[in-house]
Design a protein around this nucleic acid. Sequence first.
DNA 1: AGTGGACCGTTTGACATCAAACTATATGCG
DNA 2: CGCATATAGTTTGATGTCAAACGGTCCACT
Lengths: 163, 163
Amino acid sequence: MTKRKVAAGSRRKRHDNGSAVVKFGPLADWVGFNLRVAQEAAFQAFSKLSREIGEHPGRFAILTLIAENPGISQTTLSNAAGRDKSSMTPVLEDLVRRGLVQRRKTDSDRRTYRLSLAPAGTRTLAKLNVCARTHEDNLDRAVGPRDRARFLRTLRRIAAALN
Amino acid sequence: MTKRKVAAGSRRKRHDNGSAVVKFGPLADWVGFNLRVAQEAAFQAFSKLSREIGEHPGRFAILTLIAENPGISQTTLSNAAGRDKSSMTPVLEDLVRRGLVQRRKTDSDRRTYRLSLAPAGTRTLAKLNVCARTHEDNLDRAVGPRDRARFLRTLRRIAAALN
DNA sequence: AGTGGACCGTTTGACATCAAACTATATGCG
DNA sequence: CGCATATAGTTTGATGTCAAACGGTCCACT
């Protein structure tokens, strides 16, 4: 029970280190909980990849959406990214300061900014796309090629149903 | 183009309201992005349900884990919930103050707390379980009964592969 | 032309979370 | 025994997010 050598795989620890065996009970079979765990694991993994090239993981969706929709406004961007418009202020301030994004006022509507990628932004996005490709390969491997399409379809249905 | 009556379903707006048509480009086909969108939609939906009974959505996992593992320590709890141990401090302070959770020191190790549910905590958890059941029904409907088991398996594989 | 309501982006305040530093406690090892 | 090291929980500082309030702008309607 308290022998020096313990069962396979579990290295001897002086204390718990918080890694005791835990029962998850009904949580273990709920879609909501497993969805959260999977998403957080995926985000952590992408986070690590993007930090290796010195970029915040959240910048990827922002830069992609600007690249795909040149001239987009901050509010439209925030809606597409699923974030409040007020959280765009510091993010875009940073991206503009670093020369990745251009922010221009229009003549027609002086309230809105028109956002577009600067050349440096295109280059940064290209590097992030390499990270995303690697990340996606890891995810695909876990999902399996046979189930990928079905899995994507289910995710989209969940998003659509709960909005 | 600018007629009074517009195409089906799209109510006439004076301005964009940030709901312009947006191209998602490659984002739309990435597992990582769709996973994020689905999870955030699901969380929002559960959040709304749990706020109706006056409880923070995040308390559900905490209370369930304490119920399933009486005597669990804060660090073990934080690991199981996928949160940093330091974020448990204010949460448990709140739960103890409201009489939902009991926190006792042990004789054997005076550093650790042993957490367990108080009767009020059991009652609150029962109410949260009703919310979770409703939420899960909505999710199941979106997933479809045929794909549910496969979907769960895929989510678990993603979580396992990226840790 | 004037005006009221809607909209864009920012500011502010609240909150959850993390990471690192810190205090107190426990224990393996000499 | 005594100390170096590991662990439990808290504190602190930074960050990202939201929601509400605000100033500036636009525009439909009178």
